[in-house]
Design a protein around this nucleic acid. Structure first.
Lengths: 192, 192, 192, 192
DNA sequence: AATGAATGAGAATTCATTCAT
DNA sequence: TATGAATGAATTCTCATTCAT
């Protein structure tokens, strides 16, 4: 069985790595090519421009994050387990996409209007999943009925990011090693 | 009475505006000069480089944010009022510094090591103030004793950012017009 | 048979020409690129900066001059023939490197400390070769025994430059056409 | 008696100092102003441009050198004393105008055509004086009759510059402290 | 006359993109 | 299809010069 190398995927991976490490403007096409083990020109066989590469990479990452989040939010387990899984998944994602959360730029050039729309849609999807999670929690009697779902979701996401960011900076540990329990406990207190 | 124009301040303001709108790399020195109503070269009379300008602007913003946060966190009022004030101050700050939260880049070139340290210090100051706020709340019986202060602070900050970001994007309103009440209520539920 | 173009050499040649004609600061990178028949950016594929280009060009020229001088000074011929060869070689060199003698600048920025050292070393090498030439002349009875070798060498070099400079300016002839005989005769009188 | 400060002279002095130290292009007008103890703008009250300042400074230096040389060359003393005086005067001049010999650039922008002509004229004057010196030496029987005056003059000047340059670089002494005797002896051997 | 803040033309350098091999 | 040398638009920064005070 031959290993079929998917050049496109190699490049996407390399782009993720380099963009995350250096940010869009400091990442050189050549860096990415080198990381992918190919020549500069080859990238243009698969992507029409640096911007295109960035957008496709971004889209790829967002999709995967959204999927994983949806799966967790809509499975059958208890709210506590879901929050736990959410946090773990977030940590794992950060491990791979380290720095990605910091490169989403406002620059209109980087994000076409459609792309921006798509990102917001994806976010809304994700938020819907999480709101559904809250609803299920309410249905199961695990979450207080008077919970403002919208705010709860924002607080969950916002504090999750802040928590991982702070923890990873203070203790020099990998994202996956960070214990999500304190965060889960805190959130649960607001929900229950 | 002559109006004394403080060129340096003008430039700092213009820089804040342009950097926020376009991001560091897409903001041209000439844009900033134009916004400040001066010529390109004049900027270099007050700042040694684009990077220097960025850092001074950034420092200026961070300092002001930190001060306002500290004042609120350590005054005499109840926890609810403090959270409210915090949110309002945040909204007001975002109004002026629109987009600033999105331009803090990972790029090591933009942030000298000392600068980075200083920023983290400032953050720690801010976090300390907020932890103190929680403690006072506990002392006053307004906050549950078993609250994990560190996590609480992270959740407060993280969810505050997320809340304002989402609200402002959905409803097209100014930051100052966003009602902080839903957020305050949610956070209080976790604390009480 | 394809003509293999050595871009690096082309650029070095062009740089020599332009720097010689205009001096370091008035020589624009674009001028040099144009002279070399390439685009501005291409120069930076071969040299890291204008300064780097200057230094490499300079080093190249100095090396060649030093080699030719050493060969002449240490061969087997009589002192008169050596002086003659020296002058001819100098003329030929000036023809190619026209103006080079006038661009060696004091500016510390143009010459790194190591480069400066290297240049002085090269000079010392050259002077040693010439002193040896004088010694051989003494050994052969062609030069007076009481000759101060150090001063003689300086006088030879200094007057050689002055001679060619003056002659070329007065009579509008090429360097190679200038007769070195009057100079040789004068120097010999000091040596014999 | 009040000391009448001649601003123009102050500036000329400062310019000489700074241009000599840094070369034309690296000398900033502000540097010169600072050295002269005045403000940048003031220079433009006395000189129409940087170039004008350079030329006037240059002219001033060349004139003084030429005068001193002429005086020495045409006085009544013996050839040996004249050469000695020449060397001493040269050393003294270098002391004041340190580096000046290295800033005369080819750049056509720095030297107007008339200026260039004038410089060459001055040189011819100087050379005439020196040729006259040789002639007097011949008349007095101190110099061989068959001396090629033109070449002799060139050799005198060329070797004088080389001698001082080398000596000053090797031994770290001031120009005035360098003994001109070895040089005088060598030149005399060629002349006698 | 003296000042020095403001100006803006001009130059070095970078790097995404092209295209001949 | 893959390459990487060549390109040149775009941007930062410098500093001689001006001019209102």
């Amino acid at each position: 069985m031959t290993v079929i190398k998917d050049r496109r995927m190699d490049i996407l991976q390399a782009a993720l790595h380099i963009f995350s490490k250096k940010g869009y403007h400091n990442a050189k096409i050549e860096d990415i090519a080198m990381e992918a083990g190919i020549a500069k020109g080859t990238i243009y066989q698969y992507f029409s421009s640096k911007q295109d590469l960035f957008q496709q990479m971004f889209r790829h990452g967002v999709e995967r994050y959204g999927q994983s989040l949806q799966e967790i939010a809509t499975n059958e387990s208890h709210i506590r387990d879901k929050l736990l899984a959410l946090a773990q998944s977030h940590g794992k994602f950060l491990e791979e996409h380290i720095g990605m959360s910091e490169i989403m730029p406002k620059e209109s050039k980087l994000m076409s209007k459609e792309m921006r729309c798509w990102v917001l849609e994806q976010r809304d999807h994700a938020f819907s999943s999480l709101e559904e999670m809250i609803e299920q929690g309410i249905a199961l009697g695990e979450v207080r009925e008077d919970t403002d779902k919208g705010v709860a979701v924002l607080a969950i996401i916002g504090s999750l990011f802040a928590y991982y960011e702070k923890e990873s900076r203070n203790k020099e540990m990998k994202f996956e090693e960070i214990s999500p329990m304190p965060w889960v406990d805190f959130i649960l207190r607001a929900l229950q």
